[in-house]
């Protein structure tokens, strides 16, 4: 199988280039990450992040044949050869397939992603009905891989001002938590022409999320909450 991989090492390359690698697939090479690991055995200078190899840590997001995804859970069998691999779009490249995620995490941190409840903690758990707990499904599972935000045109143009789908999904995860008491501050924090309202429901984010989450829907719910608050 033929791979065309974006390469750039600022330590030695004047500019990025594409390098081709051809490997004979073995029966044990199931996922794209298996192939990349084999390529790295041939050329140890190829740089990428990876850790869990099962789609739960969010390390190995990259642009695969034009679409963002996780290498470790992208089956080789489903890929068109040659396979074009590029770093996630819209973020500064550090080296090869490794991008600088600072802006992405900054936006995540900006939504105050932690439970706020200033009441004195009881001796037992804070009770939550199964129905209220269900509200967190489809939200808490986010692995912060950035596939969504880096496929979102609004995030490309305003990465410093628009929170982006991943950050907004987490904003809603806390808005939706029956134990959280910071609803109005959270909404204040988002009521802004850029932070929330740059989302034009283009749905790229939903299309690429490797965990099957739906940021657009969460964003819609935040918008609803803002509308309800006004009346």
């Amino acid at each position: 199988m033929l791979f065309r991989i974006y390469r750039y090492d600022p330590d030695k390359d004047a500019k990025p280039y594409t390098k081709e690698y051809e490997i004979e697939l073995r029966s044990t090479d199931r996922m794209l990450l298996d192939a990349l690991t084999r390529i790295k055995e041939m050329d140890d200078s190829l740089s990428l992040r990876r850790s869990c190899r099962e789609g739960v840590c969010g390390s190995d997001a990259m642009n695969i044949n034009g679409k963002n995804g996780l290498a470790c859970i992208t089956p080789l069998a489903g890929l068109k050869s040659p396979v074009d691999l590029r770093p996630l779009p819209g973020l500064p490249v550090i080296r090869d397939l490794i991008v600088d995620m600072s802006q992405f995490f900054k936006q995540y941190h900006s939504v105050k992603p932690y439970l706020v409840n200033e009441e004195p903690a009881p001796d037992t758990e804070r009770l939550q009905s199964p129905k209220d707990r269900d509200q967190l499904d489809g939200l808490y599972e986010c692995i912060l891989c950035a596939c969504c935000s880096t496929s979102c045109p609004s995030f490309w143009w305003n990465p410093d001002k628009f929170v982006g789908p991943a950050g907004l999904l987490q904003a809603y995860r806390f808005l939706a938590d029956s134990r959280d008491q910071s609803t109005s501050q959270r909404l204040d924090n988002l009521e802004d022409p850029y932070r929330l309202f740059r989302c034009h429901s283009i749905m790229n984010c939903v299309d690429v999320c490797p965990k099957g989450l739906n940021p657009t829907k969460a964003i819609g719910k935040i918008k609803d909450m803002l509308v309800k608050r006004m009346v």
């Binding site: 439970l115 707990r133 938590d177 134990r179």
Partner: peptide, 13 residues
Amino acid sequence: HFGMPFDRNDNGS
């Protein structure tokens, strides 16, 4: 209390 989204029983525990 930190916010862990544990699964719940009908009584909320």
